[in-house]
Write a protein that binds this DNA or RNA. Sequence first.
DNA 1: AATGAATGAGACTTCATTCAT
DNA 2: CATGAATGAAGTCTCATTCAT
Lengths: 219, 219, 219, 219
Amino acid sequence: MSKVFTFSLQGADLSTRIPKAKAAMRKEPSQSRSKATVEAIIEAATRILSVEGWAGFNTNKVAEAAGVSIGSLYQYFPSKLSLVEAIRRRHIEDCLGVMKRAGKSGRPLAQFVADLVRDLIAVHSLHPGLHRVLLDDAPSADAFRDPHDAFEVDYLASYTAVVRHYRQGKTGSSDEAVAMTLSDAIDGVIHNAARRGTLQNPEVGAELVRLVTSYLAAE
Amino acid sequence: MSKVFTFSLQGADLSTRIPKAKAAMRKEPSQSRSKATVEAIIEAATRILSVEGWAGFNTNKVAEAAGVSIGSLYQYFPSKLSLVEAIRRRHIEDCLGVMKRAGKSGRPLAQFVADLVRDLIAVHSLHPGLHRVLLDDAPSADAFRDPHDAFEVDYLASYTAVVRHYRQGKTGSSDEAVAMTLSDAIDGVIHNAARRGTLQNPEVGAELVRLVTSYLAAE
Amino acid sequence: MSKVFTFSLQGADLSTRIPKAKAAMRKEPSQSRSKATVEAIIEAATRILSVEGWAGFNTNKVAEAAGVSIGSLYQYFPSKLSLVEAIRRRHIEDCLGVMKRAGKSGRPLAQFVADLVRDLIAVHSLHPGLHRVLLDDAPSADAFRDPHDAFEVDYLASYTAVVRHYRQGKTGSSDEAVAMTLSDAIDGVIHNAARRGTLQNPEVGAELVRLVTSYLAAE
Amino acid sequence: MSKVFTFSLQGADLSTRIPKAKAAMRKEPSQSRSKATVEAIIEAATRILSVEGWAGFNTNKVAEAAGVSIGSLYQYFPSKLSLVEAIRRRHIEDCLGVMKRAGKSGRPLAQFVADLVRDLIAVHSLHPGLHRVLLDDAPSADAFRDPHDAFEVDYLASYTAVVRHYRQGKTGSSDEAVAMTLSDAIDGVIHNAARRGTLQNPEVGAELVRLVTSYLAAE
DNA sequence: AATGAATGAGACTTCATTCAT
DNA sequence: CATGAATGAAGTCTCATTCAT
């Protein structure tokens, strides 16, 4: 069983990504040069937001870190907020992908939980401070926070489907409530660990597995 | 058993507060008028930070909302950071108090969990957005985030003590790891519920109780 | 009659001014110090707008010319546009005052026209390029351009009253149409003269008097 | 006589245009495709400047509206200023043409004035906001404003010739002063009407005719 | 010739903090 | 002590212009 909890980043498959959000972009890059520019901007922005938080996140610094001019940044992102939105969407898509992959085939609970925890930790290890920052309401265009937002709805729907599968027969709680609670609890554990810098600590993954398993198996 | 999950705010006793931190204050409010001023400032600042997040939090607005001049604010709080620090300390003290009270006498697990969840929800209902915002690293003087910080150490120590009590005999996980995971999971559930505005929803409390109970009872 | 056309600036009474617009101000100056600041800002801004036009009009330059910091400017004017708006209102009030004073008592047509032309030229001589710039639509908050705007309505109403008085008995044209045409023609002559720098040229005033007189006396 | 004041746009002949100015162009459009490109750019630029004023007038927007790349725009117009200059010249030529045609043959005053007013209104109806914007000094290369500028000199010379013809025998004012005043007054009436959107209102034309006629007939 | 990505000076605006009254 | 006017560094964003492809 210790094999399952290796938490190596190699095990996580982050390649399946939903197409990027268009709404936030001022103009779709058509040439390969501009695609590279956009990619460099998003990457630099993600890194800065993750490492320095809101305090250190400004468009000048992002442009400089991305190796482009401030003008180029604003050619593709109409505002600072739209840049954050692009980061947010990409991060949520990553989490969504992990969840869907872990619960795909009808594998046993233990296997599902192990995969889920391992890959979520992998996703958050790339940019440890990111998710917490993204939850801050202030500079949010209400994309993630609005309960009707497509992303969060999709996210919870996926969780609910998996929860329903593994709780079959259990009553007393709605699958939706369990899914939401589970999602939030995992959020809390992972982001606080990221905050402390202990995300790679095997104990964190092991306890998270125990938490999820016991909750899904309860009653 | 439904009685246990009432989660009425009336049940929560938030009155026992550790004496205010001195370090953050430029000058000790010795007279009652000064105390009232300080109180008004912290109250206004907490409300603004909770409702508007970092984006809407600035010292001029706080001063206006508190009904004092910006000059007066700076007489009691030497910087914006010190003001945030005061808010942070007060909030942590509140959480700490809840935890200590719930685990005080050697009551059964079910009772402890019910009280803990109910009072934590009560604490976070006053300023739903506060705790999440305080976790953001941005304007933090690293008081809360540093693992050696007195508050967090105290916080986790309390959790650990309680966990040790209710897990007596169980092995395979350290009490510290369980305490931390538990604290983080509760954080996640409560803050996400606060974010969605569903903190008062009875299902949230009920599921949180199930989560904590099953985790502590596991193995 | 040549005495009437002296066009000395001393003859113009610009002191009767309608209270300043509040809407455009972020905060009403209460102390004498801040009143002086606001006055300095408006004065500098008027001068720059008049002399350099839109191209040279920026808030940094205004602040510097006024001898205040850029922060002070924004303490009283929430935006560049609001500053222009303040200038615009003040200028329109000046023109309005001239018109009302010239047509006040039931003096003969020649006297009215002479006073009107003399004082309008005086008003526009203070900041020769101002009015033309203010008519530019772009950075206008539609205060002057909106036909229902209180100022323009007031302005035309005053013109109409005077026109009605001096055209008594004449038919074939509505007093409103005549008033508007007259106002616009005077505008054109004065602003183009200001543009050329010939506003002080006695011929300009004399011809303007002939234009107005012949139009009002026609048919 | 009401027939004279029809002011139908069909009556206006805008086809006689002085050959385009070369100075402002970076390169002579020798092929038909180039000519079409230049035409498209000037047309788009005129429309934008007229409708949105200086605030909305930028080279990137003009290029997009013209359906050409920004690079192509700069191939024909070496700077933003040169583009404005081209617009300005074309507009002045249009006005000049109207004036010259109306005063060509020795027709009676009433006929001349009626034609002049009708065609000037027609010219300004195409781009109602244009002329007023062009008078702003801001991005002007002082081509129009300088009293010695060939265009304005030519313009006033034409006016003076016509004025001299219709004022034959009158003294007390120089023909030059009358011409200038007349030109400026017409300017004012037309541009303010354009600003209000009432340029097509028959009353505007009728009153303008009365204004011009009475002024030229005076004394 | 044409394209459009890239540039960066410069303009607008905010807000933490100071200090004269 | 209290006030609030003043400051200016720093951040957001625009747009005229260039140049590699």
